[in-house]
């Protein structure tokens, strides 16, 4: 009996593998090719913009021209600051988060990004802090717990209408922020085991707490069309944000 069960399990496994590698592969590869570049999480250190790959390390920003994937060309290294954590592309700009500042770089010359602004977080000195931006607003989370520092954590909103001089317009106390993302009037802030906090940003400069999605440990998100992709402990979770971005509806998890 045990032998039969084993055989059945093997057959099922083989079918699953065949389906995965045979059937779906072509379709997905096609869609990958068709859709050019996609989107990463807010805590990324790699990002693509145009024909360039930009990478931050602890202190600098590196530019690679990747028009021909067979021959990437290392174009430049720009010293940015210390404790650089994250990079986020928006239009022809790069938003770079460090433990003490938000930097904005222009890609007018994509080979050699130029700094157009540096905004210091005047509330904390040591933190981990991804930044996202859209239109005239940028949000950063400053996590001042654990290995990243020992001060108050916060969600900070900047008015970036004048890109050369961001103005810190609001500071919302949060407990344990990690990555963040936004869609329409909703801002998602991952707070590890406390859950994913959803803020109403109808007034974009003043996030208002709406609800918490709990039950998992959330680290980062990518709002992508009508789907919210969440990096959680152990894997990924998908939420529907097509109907009401302020009320993400759980769809599935990808763990195994």
């Amino acid at each position: 009996m045990l032998e039969i069960m084993k055989t059945v399990k093997h057959i099922v496994a083989i079918i699953v593998i065949l389906l995965a590698f045979g059937n779906c592969t072509k379709e997905s590869a096609d869609s990958a090719a068709a859709n050019a570049s996609g989107a990463g999480g807010s805590t990324a250190k790699f990002t693509l913009s145009g024909n360039y790959l930009y990478v931050v390390d602890n202190t600098s920003l590196k530019a690679f021209q990747v028009a021909d994937p067979q021959h990437p060309v290392y174009k430049s290294k720009t010293e940015v600051g210390i404790n650089i954590e994250t990079i986020f592309p928006y239009e022809d700009k790069l938003f770079i988060g460090s433990s003490s500042s938000m930097y904005i770089y222009s890609l007018t010359n994509p080979d050699q990004p130029q700094r157009i602004a540096k905004a210091d977080y005047n509330i904390v000195r040591m933190s981990c802090d991804p930044v996202i931006a859209k239109d005239s607003v940028a949000y950063a989370t400053l996590r001042a717990t654990g290995r990243c520092g020992w001060a108050q954590s916060a969600l900070v909103a900047y008015n970036i209408k004048n890109i050369a001089s961001p103005v810190q317009v609001s500071t919302t106390a949060v407990s344990s922020p990690f990555g963040l993302g936004m869609k329409d009037n909703a801002l998602y802030v991952c707070q590890a085991n406390l859950g994913m906090f959803v803020y109403n940003i109808t007034n974009r400069y003043n996030p208002v707490y709406a609800r918490t999605i709990s039950g998992d440990t959330f680290y980062d998100v990518i709002p992508y069309g009508n789907i919210l992709i969440a990096q959680i402990e152990g894997g990924l979770a998908l939420y529907d944000i097509g109907t009401n971005p302020l009320q993400p509806v759980f769809i599935s998890k990808i763990l195994q």
Partner: peptide
């Protein structure tokens, strides 16, 4: 130990 994420098209 799941880490950073990226999506494009139908692929994650």
């Amino acid at each position: 130990q799941g880490g950073k994420i990226y999506t494009t098209g139908n692929l994650l």
